[in-house]
Amino acid sequence: MSAILAEKKHLFSCWDRLKGQIRDKIIILFLDFDGTLAPIVEKTGLAALPEETRKVLEKLSRSPCFRIAVVSGRMLADLKQKMNIPHITYVGNHGYEIEGPDINFRGLIPPSMNEAMGFIRENLNGKLASIPGVHIEDKGITLSLHYRSADPENFKLIKRIFNNTCKPYLKNNQITVKSGKMVFEIRPPVVWDKGKAVLWLLNKWKRVLGGDNVFPVCIGDDVTDEDAFKVLKGKGVTVRVGQERDTAAEYYLGNQEEINQLLSLFLESAA
């Protein structure tokens, strides 16, 4: 375990103190999907929300003490289909698509972005076709290159092909690039990410519900969740799922399987 992570505390060991912080508050739960609500799987299309987790989330969504936003890199339509829970807010494509009660947001994408994405997708498909285990996911606004199922011996080659393909578009400010868990993301060249989306939603809920009554809790497992952890520092509670690396989160959970216990604790706190 890294020195920085060793200084973090497991959330369950601090639960009694946290209960005092959230007493009489409306809890805003910002939850990642893959690796947080749902176990990580090799083929992203097979990821599924466990039934036990679904039941707890449905109860939380019906409680006046909670608001729920699922914040994911998945395309909005895909995320909604995977979750299929009404009365919650869905944040897809790392914040470029947001939909929920009284919310319908789509990020502004420069026209040149669509053309660039088309060329990049075709080039990557052609150059990576001979490497097994690589999957290019076109999410409309963003493009993801997944290599979780590839042979580790090919990781450097995959990264080199990706970087060389994207380089001219990055130079011309037509795209931005980020990396996650066994994935490279190509995004629009605008200053927007999970952190910006989370802060936008939090401020919106503060205006509606009263700033002093709102307490945000953000839980995620990926590099892309770090943007949300950073913007919420000092504003609420941030939780990293897993212990693999340094994180801006204040607390951690040992693994994805602990999420049900944590959600149940939140539900009990409102009883």
Rank of each mutant, 00 (worst) to 15 (best):
G133W: 02
G45N: 10
E58R: 10
N173I: 05
A3C: 06
K19F: 03
N163V: 13
L170A: 01
Y90H: 13
R240L: 14
P39H: 06
V70I: 13
C65D: 10
F30P: 01
H146N: 12
D32F: 11
D193N: 15
T142N: 12
S179F: 08
R121G: 00
P64V: 05
A271E: 15
E7G: 14
A38E: 00
I4D: 15
R67M: 05
L60K: 02
K206L: 02
I136A: 06
N84V: 03
G180L: 08
H94Y: 12
K230T: 12
F119H: 15
E52N: 13
D246V: 01
L265D: 04
K82F: 11
L5S: 02
K43Y: 15
G126V: 00
K80G: 08
V56A: 05
I28R: 05
I109N: 06
R245V: 02
L5F: 11
A38W: 04
V217D: 10
L31T: 04
D102F: 08
W200M: 14
S130I: 01
D16M: 10
H10T: 01
D24I: 04
E226P: 09
K55Y: 08
P50Y: 01
P111E: 11
F30N: 12
P132V: 05
L267D: 03
I85P: 02
M117E: 05
F12D: 10
S61Y: 02
G73L: 03
L60D: 02
V241C: 10
N104G: 08
G210Q: 06
M182S: 13
C166I: 13
I259H: 00
E99S: 12
K167N: 12
A47W: 00
A47N: 04
G220N: 07
R54S: 08
E185Q: 14
D246S: 12
I27D: 05
Y169I: 01
F105P: 00
A3D: 14
G45T: 08
V237H: 03
I27S: 05
G100D: 01
T89K: 09
V198N: 01
H135I: 12
S149H: 07
D32Y: 11
A150C: 12
K139H: 09
M83L: 15
K181V: 04
F162L: 10
I120R: 03
T165E: 09
S264H: 08
D225Y: 09
N203M: 07
M117C: 04
K43M: 09
K139L: 07
E226H: 07
F184G: 02
V231Y: 02
E122A: 14
A150Q: 06
T247M: 01
I131F: 09
D32L: 10
S112P: 03
R245C: 05
V177L: 13
L145Y: 06
D34N: 13
